[in-house]
Design a protein around this nucleic acid. Structure first.
Lengths: 120, 120
DNA sequence: AGAACCTTGACACAATCGTGGTAAGGTTGT
DNA sequence: ACAACCTTACCACGATTGTGTCAAGGTTCT
C-alpha cells in the first residue's frame, strides 16, 4: 500500500517508533491517521523524517530547537521580538572619546562579532 | 561613571550576577571588560538585558532558544536547511482522490529536491 | 476469532539547562 | 594597604529533553 505503519516507517527512516511519536508530540510532524487511529506515513512524511534526521545530526540541532524555529515561523510577535533584540547591537559612539573603561580592541572585537552574525 | 559592574548591573536588570555570566557563556551578550578583566555594563548592555528578560518571560522562551536563533542568523547553511525543511510541508488537498495524493506528493517533493540540489 | 500490530500512559534514566553557592585568587578605589 | 568587589572553576540540584520499556486495551488482516 501507499502508507506505512509506525514500525515500518521507523525502519525506513532510522528513527525509533518511540521517537516518531515524540516528534509528533513536539509538533514537528503529524502523521495522518487511519479510521482506527493508526498513524500512517506516506512518502512525503517518510522523506521529511529522513531529512529531519540529517538536519539534526549534521548541524548538531535538537528537536527543541526545531520546535522553536517553528514558533518563529508561526508567531509573528515572537519573531519580531527576537529579530529586534538581535538587531539592537550595543553601540556607544559617544563613549569613544571619553572611554576610560572600554579599550579600542574590545570595541573592535565586538564589531567583528556583530558583523559575523549579520552575514546573511 | 559610565559603566556598572556585574552586581550593579544585576540589580538594575533583574538578572542575577550568575546569570549575567551564563548569558555571556552561551554567547548572547558579551560585556566589554576593564583593563583588569571586570565586566562593565554600559547603558546599551543594560537595556538589552532588560529587553532580553522581557522577551523570555513574555514568550516563554529559553536562553537555549535564543542561542539557536543566533545560530540561525549566523550560519547560512543551517538557516537554509531549517527553512527548507519547514517549506516542504506535506499538504494533501482534500479534492485529490485518495489513490492520487501519494503520487501528487511524490512529484511535489521531487520538485523540491531538484530545486534544493540546484542551490548547491 | 486470533495473531500481530497499533494506541496512550506511565515509570525510568542519562544528559543538559537554569540557577545557586563556595573557594582561591586578582582588581579597584580610598 | 585594605576592604570590597571582581574573576574563573568547581560542586550541587531540580526541571526538562531525548530515549527506552512495559502495561492495558483497541485495530487490522487473514
Amino acid at each position: 500500500m501507499e502508507a506505512l505503519t509506525i514500525n515500518e516507517a521507523a525502519e525506513t527512516t532510522g528513527w525509533s517508533p518511540r521517537m516518531l511519536r515524540y516528534i509528533e508530540r513536539v509538533g514537528l510532524l503529524d502523521a495522518p491517521r487511519s479510521e482506527g487511529g493508526y498513524r500512517l506515513y506516506g512518502a512525503p512524511e517518510l522523506q521529511r523524517l529522513r531529512t529531519l534526521r540529517e538536519l539534526l545530526t549534521e548541524h548538531d540541532v535538537g528537536l527543541g530547537d526545531m520546535g522553536f524555529a517553528q514558533r518563529l515561523r508561526a508567531e509573528d510577535e515572537l519573531r519580531e521580538a527576537v529579530e529586534g533584540w538581535f538587531a539592537a547591537e550595543p553601540e556607544r559612539p559617544a563613549d569613544i572619546a571619553e572611554s576610560d573603561w572600554l579599550s579600542f580592541e574590545q570595541r573592535k572585537h565586538e564589531r567583528l562579532l556583530t558583523a559575523a552574525a549579520q552575514l546573511t
